[in-house]
Nucleic acid binder design. Structure first.
Lengths: 370, 370
DNA sequence: ATGAAAGCGCTAACAG
DNA sequence: CTGTTAGCGCTTTCAT
C-alpha cells in the first residue's frame, strides 16, 4: 500500500480514482490485502519458505534467521492471510454458531457460553443469525456461505424443515445440534431435559394441592414445548388427574402471547389454580394479567415458567422455573464437535442434560376449595 | 469421501484410524472438503473453466452446456469453496459485526438490525463476540483472525483501548464504528445523539418543576454515558440550576448498580425528586428500590432512562426514555462500509442521528415543596 | 538448516 | 462460445 503514496494522495485530492493506474503502480485494488509473506522474505533476504517457518514457529530454523524474519514482518506490518493458510491446512480454527433468533435471551445465553468455551480451545466462534427458518432454499444458501469458512457448526435451537435436516445429515460436515428434540436424527444432539423437568414441576404443583393446572404452549419449532407439555401430562397421569384439553392454551413464547393465553384462562367458568408456562417470558406475561385481574401470587394462583430467563427473577414475586445447565451443555457441544472435526469417533450421539428445578416465590399451596 | 467406503467402515468398526491409510485410498482427512469444480467438469465433460462459468452465471455459455454442468454439480452435491473463491476475487461477501457483550439488549438490537440490512445487500453478517475489551494484544489476535475472512467490519459500541483504535486507524481495512464517542477518530462513525437527547430529557424534568435531579452514570467505555451526563449538566446550566456533584452517582449500566446508586441517593438528607439514569436497566433497578422504599412513581419521584430497552415498557409504571434510531443507524453503517469496501469515497466521516424522546408514565410534576 | 517445486480450489485474462 | 494459462498466499514435501 506504500508503493505510491504520492500519486495515491494526489489522485485522492483530485477526487479521482483510476483503477488501472493504481494497479499499474502496484497498489492492489481488490482488497486492502496487506503485505504478503514474499515481501517479508525479500526484506529479510531469505526464501519464502524460511519466512513461513520463522513465523509459524515449527520446523528447524536458526535463532538468527528467525529474528531477522520477525523483524522484517514487524516492520512491514505483516499479517498472515487466514484464507490462504486455511486453504492449505484445511482448518480455519473457526466454529460457527447458527441461530434463528439472536434476540432470544436463552439463545443468547447459549451463544455467550459457546463463545467462551470455543476460546478455551484456542479457536473462535462466529455467530450467524439466520433470521428466517431453515428452509431448504435458505439452507443451501447458508451451506454455500459456510463451505470452507469454518471447521464445524453448532445449531442452537434450530428451526429447521425436515428437508434441511435431511440435507444436513447427508453432508459429512461436522455439525452438532443443541436443543433440538422435534425428531430423531443421526446428527449429534445435546439437549437439556424438558420432559422430566416439566414433570417434576407439575408434580410440585400437584403436591401443593393443585388440581386444575393449566399449560401454556410455545411454538413447536424445536420440539421443546412439546416435550414440556408431555412432562406436564405425564405428571397429571401419575396423579390420576383427568386431562382437560381446555387447560392447554397456545402461545408463541412471547410475553404478549402468555398474557393473552392467561386472559383466555381467566375467562373460563372453572379457572385453573395454577399455570405452567412453557417459558419465562410467557409466565411473566401471565403474571401481569393475573395481577391486573386483582389476583395475588402465589396465594391465589401459582405460576411456573421455564428457562430461568432474567425476567423470571426480576418480577415480583420471583417466578419458580427450570434451568438447563447451559455452561455444561455448551462445553459438551464443543467437545463433540471437535471430535468430529478431528475425525475421531464421536463419543455420544444424543445427550440429555438434567434440568434444575428452581423453587422461588410464585408457587404455594392451592387456595381452599370454594 | 466415497472412494473407499468399505475400508473406511471396516477401520471404523475395528476402532482404528490410520491416517496414512485413509490418505492412500483417496479419503481426504484434513477436512470434509467435498467435491471440487474439477470433478464437476470431468463429469460434465467440459473444462474446469467452463464449469466455473456455468455455475457463476456470467460469461458466454450455451444453455445446453450450462444445463449439463448444473446437472453434474447437483448430482455430485457440489458446493463452491468460499475460501478459494475469496482468494481470487478478494471478496467473501461477508461482513463482520464485532461486539464486546452480546448479552446486552441494546447491542443485540443493533446486531439484529445489521443482520437484516446486510442481507438486503446480498451479503451476510457474521457476529464476533469479543468477550474481553479490545486491548492491543487481543486486537492483534482478532486482526489476524479477521484478515481475509471478511470484506469489512462494523464495531458496535466497542470498548477499545487507544492503542487498538490507533492500530485500526492505520490499517486500511474497511471499518465503521457504531456508537463510539469516547474520542475523535479518523474512522467513520455512526452515532446516536446522546447529548441533545439527555439535555431534552433533563429539560422535560425541569419543566415539570424538578430542581433536584440526580444522574446515574454508566461506565465509560464508549463515551456514551459521558455524553448523556454532559447533556444533563447543560440542561441544568440552561435553567440556572447549580450543579450538585453529590447528585451524580456511579453505576455500570447494570440493573443492580442502578439499584445501589438509588439507595445512596435515598440516603441523602436532601433527596432528589427526579432521577435520570444513563440506561433503562439502571432505571429499572432504580425503580425497584424507589418502590420498595414506599415511594410512588411518578407522583413522588420522576424517573427517566435511556435506550428504550424492553424492560422500560415492561415495568409499572412504564419508563420515560430515549431511543436511538437503530434501524436507520444500521442502514447508514452498512452503507458507509460498502462505500469503503468498494473503494468509493465515503460520504460522511461522522454522522449523528437524533434520538427520540419517549414520554411514558414515569415522569410527572415535582411534588410540592415540603 | 534452508531452498525449490508443487498445488490447495478457484477465476481473470487471453487465446482459439 | 469454450479451453488454456497463470496465479491468489500459503504450506507440505522433497531436495540440498
Amino acid at each position: 500500500m506504500n508503493h505510491c503514496p504520492d500519486l495515491h494522495g494526489l489522485m485522492a485530492r483530485m477526487g479521482v480514482i483510476s483503477f488501472s493506474f493504481l494497479q499499474a503502480c502496484g497498489c492492489s485494488m481488490k482488497k486492502s490485502t496487506g503485505v504478503t509473506l514474499i515481501e517479508v522474505a525479500k526484506k529479510a533476504g531469505v526464501a519464502r519458505m524460511t519466512a513461513s517457518r520463522a513465523l509459524s514457529g515449527d520446523g528447524y530454523i536458526t535463532e538468527e534467521t528467525k529474528a531477522k524474519v520477525l523483524a522484517a514482518a514487524a516492520e512491514l506490518g505483516y499479517t498472515p492471510n487466514a484464507l490462504a493458510r486455511a486453504m492449505k491446512g484445511g482448518r480455519t480454527n473457526v466454529i460457527g454458531a447458527v441461530v434463528n433468533d439472536l434476540a432470544s435471551t436463552v439463545i443468547n445465553a447459549y451463544v455467550t457460553e459457546l463463545s467462551a468455551e470455543v476460546r478455551r480451545h484456542h479457536m473462535d466462534l462466529f455467530i450467524y443469525n439466520a433470521v428466517d427458518d431453515f428452509s431448504l432454499a435458505n439452507g443451501q444458501r447458508l451451506d454455500q456461505l459456510l463451505n470452507g469458512l469454518w471447521d464445524g457448526l453448532i445449531y442452537v435451537m434450530p428451526r429447521m424443515s425436515d428437508e434441511y435436516l435431511a440435507m444436513l445429515e447427508q453432508s459429512s460436515r461436522p455439525v452438532v445440534l443443541i436443543n433440538y428434540c422435534k425428531q430423531v436424527t443421526g446428527l449429534p444432539v445435546i439437549n437439556g431435559d424438558n420432559f422430566n423437568g416439566a414433570r417434576d414441576a407439575t408434580h410440585h404443583l400437584i403436591d401443593l394441592g393443585h388440581r386444575r393446572i393449566a399449560f401454556i404452549r410455545g411454538f413447536g419449532y424445536t420440539g421443546q414445548s412439546e416435550e414440556r407439555e408431555r412432562g406436564y401430562r405425564a405428571a397429571l397421569d401419575d396423579a390420576g388427574i383427568v386431562f382437560d384439553p381446555e387447560l392447554v392454551q397456545q402461545g408463541d413464547f412471547s410475553l404478549l402471547s402468555g398474557a393473552e393465553a392467561t386472559e383466555r384462562l381467566l375467562g373460563m367458568a372453572n379457572r385453573p389454580t395454577a399455570i405452567f408456562a412453557a417459558n419465562d417470558e410467557m409466565a411473566a406475561g401471565s403474571m401481569q394479567v393475573l395481577q391486573a385481574a386483582g389476583l395475588t401470587l402465589p396465594q391465589q394462583v401459582s405460576l411456573i415458567g421455564f428457562d430461568d430467563a432474567p425476567i423470571a427473577s426480576f418480577v415480583q414475586p420471583k417466578i419458580t422455573t427450570l434451568r438447563h445447565p447451559i455452561g455444561a451443555m455448551a462445553k459438551a457441544a464443543v467437545q463433540e464437535l471437535l471430535l468430529r472435526i478431528n475425525n475421531e469417533p464421536g463419543r455420544r450421539q444424543r445427550v440429555e442434560f438434567p434440568s434444575e428445578f428452581l423453587v422461588r416465590e410464585s408457587t404455594a399451596a392451592a387456595p381452599p376449595h370454594p
